[in-house]
Measured scan of single mutants.
Amino acid sequence: MAEQVALSRTQVCGILREELFQGDAFHQSDTHIFIIMGASGDLAKKKIYPTIWWLFRDGLLPENTFIVGYARSRLTVADIRKQSEPFFKATPEEKLKLEDFFARNSYVAGQYDDAASYQRLNSHMNALHLGSQANRLFYLALPPTVYEAVTKNIHESCMSQIGWNRIIVEKPFGRDLQSSDRLSNHISSLFREDQIYRIDHYLGKEMVQNLMVLRFANRIFGPIWNRDNIACVILTFKEPFGTEGRGGYFDEFGIIRDVMQNHLLQMLCLVAMEKPASTNSDDVRDEKVKVLKCISEVQANNVVLGQYVGNPDGEGEATKGYLDDPTVPRGSTTATFAAVVLYVENERWDGVPFILRCGKALNERKAEVRLQFHDVAGDIFHQQCKRNELVIRVQPNEAVYTKMMTKKPGMFFNPEESELDLTYGNRYKNVKLPDAYERLILDVFCGSQMHFVRSDELREAWRIFTPLLHQIELEKPKPIPYIYGSRGPTEADELMKRVGFQYEGTYKWVNP
């Protein structure tokens, strides 16, 4: 592979701008107003304001973009700056750019259920340069409990009458099928589907988006991507930290609602779906819905739930269990780990287990898709061969690698495990991989909904998990304890083995 010439960040961002501006969906010269509902909250200060700053800094926003914060707290732009700027990672050389960014910011205080507050917000936006005809993007960085009041008031008082209007809704989209349907029906009564952007930030990850290209742009994968060759698929999300004093919020939802029903299920769809007619948003989402419709409700015998306990040999936070978090209700049975087996009941995947695993306070930070292939028929190497695996590593250190057998150097035919490896950090030294939120917010500006969740996708996802969630809430089974920093409950490994996964433990990928 030829040595790549190092590029400056300015040059890299210039390439990104060229890609972005050559499309006809990006209205570079139009006025846009980006409204952050819930501007005083954690999500706004840690993710949304920093993301908008990065896009502005790199010249990736339309030229005439204004940012308006809205929340109940009586704040000023200076207050917003004070709480969000520490997350910007701005350099001293960017000081003038930073001043320009905050000059485009404003803030309006108001209630979430008060019509007069929204009329005041609308008047404020109209007073901005060309504000009355601007395109408006409303980001709901809010708890779902206020979605209905907020969307109703936005629709009645704050819509642009000339430009387009788009609304970005953060997960969780309800707690179960019934609450999700209620919320979807409410929002759909106010906005068209092409105006609604239900954001799952995992769909903005580079390697998640790469799944489609790997599958449908490489001839070698087509013939082997089926039940005849693939023994099982494992989708993993692991965090090495616990709730760390923020367990009160987590306890309301648990690990299945927080990660599995959305992030992991979306990745499953991209692995299992048929080739779409095109890369058009609805063509892709149509195929994802077909996959979900082929999955039956989760069966309790295919589920393992766990909850982390303190590690007596650990240090600091590792010595504390979930129930030691003062914000967690006493005696909570909320799971911090889950392993679930699903089956896609169609011709391509009949009988292939899709194993979804996620948890907190585990032994490493990792998100990946792992396809394990069947054993080689007619073994001539005296059971020395391990199964081939194709691994798409989402985070950290984005990579695609194939675990395969090669001859060990020497005189004899002794096979050993090795890999074919594409590590993004080595291959793409001159490429700026956008943060997931950067990519998705740019998608909203461009009107691309491919990486957002459609209402029928959402409904099918909740259909699969709601009976299990209701059973857990009714019966309150005690989750299996696992030690902070471990791989999780051993019962999860036993479940995976029972459905056909072979864990060798003899080879570990190392970032080159």
Rank of each mutant, 00 (worst) to 15 (best):
A2R: 09
E3S: 05
E3Y: 05
E3V: 06
Q4F: 07
Q4E: 11
V5T: 08
V5N: 09
A6F: 08
L7P: 05
L7D: 08
S8I: 04
R9V: 09
R9S: 08
T10H: 07
V12K: 10
G14N: 14
G14R: 12
I15K: 05
I15W: 05
L16C: 04
R17Y: 05
E18Y: 07
E19K: 04
L20R: 05
L20M: 15
L20G: 03
Q22W: 10
Q22V: 13
Q22K: 07
Q22R: 08
Q22E: 11
G23K: 09
G23Y: 14
G23S: 15
A25T: 10
A25W: 10
A25S: 13
A25V: 07
A25E: 12
F26H: 08
H27P: 03
Q28S: 07
Q28Y: 10
Q28P: 14
Q28E: 06
S29I: 05
T31R: 06
H32W: 03
H32F: 10
I33W: 04
F34Q: 02
I35R: 01
I36S: 00
I36D: 00
M37G: 01
M37R: 01
G38W: 01
A39Y: 00
G41S: 14
G41K: 06
G41W: 02
G41L: 05
G41R: 11
G41Q: 07
L43R: 09
A44F: 03
K45C: 11
K46Q: 12
K46F: 11
K47A: 10
K47E: 10
K47D: 06
K47F: 12
I48V: 12
P50A: 03
T51E: 13
T51Q: 06
W53C: 00
W53M: 00
L55F: 04
L55G: 05
F56S: 02
D58L: 10
G59S: 02
L60V: 04
L60W: 02
N64D: 07
T65M: 10
F66G: 02
I67E: 00
I67V: 08
V68T: 04
G69Q: 02
Y70M: 09
Y70A: 05
Y70S: 04
A71M: 02
R72P: 13
R72F: 04
R74E: 10
R74S: 09
L75M: 05
T76M: 07
T76G: 05
T76I: 04
T76W: 02
T76H: 08
A78T: 03
I80A: 03
I80K: 00
I80W: 11
I80T: 02
Q83T: 10
S84K: 02
S84L: 08
S84W: 03
S84D: 02
E85H: 03
F87C: 03
F87I: 05
F87A: 04
F88L: 12
K89G: 07
K89L: 10
K89Y: 07
A90K: 03
A90T: 12
K97Q: 15
K97D: 03
K97T: 07
E99R: 09
F102A: 02
F102S: 01
F102Q: 02
R104P: 00
R104C: 05
R104W: 02
R104A: 04
N105T: 12
N105Y: 06
Y107D: 00
Y107K: 01
Y107V: 12
V108P: 00
A109T: 13
A109K: 10
A109I: 05
G110E: 01
G110A: 03
Q111S: 08
Y112G: 09
Y112C: 03
Y112T: 04
Y112A: 04
D113C: 08
A116Y: 07
A116W: 06
S117W: 04
S117H: 05
Q119E: 09
L121H: 00
L121V: 03
N122E: 06
S123E: 09
S123Q: 10
H124E: 09
H124T: 06
M125I: 06
N126H: 09
N126L: 12
A127W: 07
L128Q: 10
L128I: 07
H129T: 10
H129C: 13
G131C: 05
G131W: 05
S132D: 07
S132R: 10
Q133D: 11
Q133N: 04
A134W: 01
A134K: 04
N135S: 05
L137E: 02
L137S: 04
F138W: 04
Y139D: 02
L140V: 10
A141S: 10
A141I: 02
A141H: 04
L142A: 07
P144M: 12
P144Y: 10
T145Y: 08
T145R: 07
E148V: 11
V150R: 00
V150G: 04
T151V: 09
T151R: 00
K152V: 14
I154R: 00
H155D: 06
H155N: 10
E156H: 09
C158W: 00
S160R: 04
S160E: 05
S160D: 07
Q161I: 06
Q161L: 11
I162F: 10
I162M: 10
I162A: 09
G163M: 02
G163P: 01
W164K: 06
W164F: 10
W164A: 06
N165Q: 04
R166N: 02
R166A: 02
I167V: 09
I167R: 00
I167W: 00
I168N: 00
I168A: 09
I168H: 00
V169C: 14
P172W: 03
F173L: 04
F173K: 01
F173S: 10
F173D: 02
G174A: 06
R175C: 13
R175V: 12
L177K: 15
L177T: 09
L177A: 06
Q178W: 10
D181I: 05
R182V: 08
L183M: 11
N185A: 09
H186E: 10
H186M: 10
I187T: 15
I187S: 06
S188T: 15
S188G: 13
S189W: 02
L190H: 09
L190S: 10
F191Y: 09
F191N: 00
F191V: 02
E193G: 03
D194Y: 04
D194F: 06
D194R: 08
Q195G: 04
Q195D: 04
I196N: 00
I196E: 00
Y197L: 01
Y197G: 01
R198Q: 03
H201M: 07
Y202G: 15
Y202F: 12
K205P: 14
K205Q: 15
E206N: 14
M207G: 10
V208Q: 15
V208A: 14
Q209V: 04
N210T: 11
N210H: 14
L211M: 14
L211N: 01
L211H: 02
L211F: 14
M212C: 11
M212Y: 09
M212D: 05
V213D: 15
L214D: 02
L214S: 12
N218A: 00
N218W: 00
N218E: 00
R219M: 13
I220K: 04
I224Y: 03
W225M: 03
N226E: 04
R227E: 02
R227P: 00
D228Q: 09
N229A: 08
A231V: 04
V233R: 01
V233S: 00
I234W: 08
I234Y: 15
L235V: 07
L235E: 01
L235Q: 00
L235H: 01
T236D: 15
T236G: 04
F237W: 13
F237Q: 06
K238D: 15
K238R: 07
E239N: 06
P240Q: 08
F241D: 14
F241C: 15
F241L: 13
G242N: 08
T243I: 14
G245F: 07
G247L: 08
Y249M: 12
F250I: 10
F250Y: 13
D251S: 07
D251P: 05
E252T: 12
E252R: 11
F253P: 13
G254W: 01
G254T: 03
I255N: 00
I255R: 01
I256H: 00
R257K: 14
R257A: 10
R257W: 03
R257Q: 15
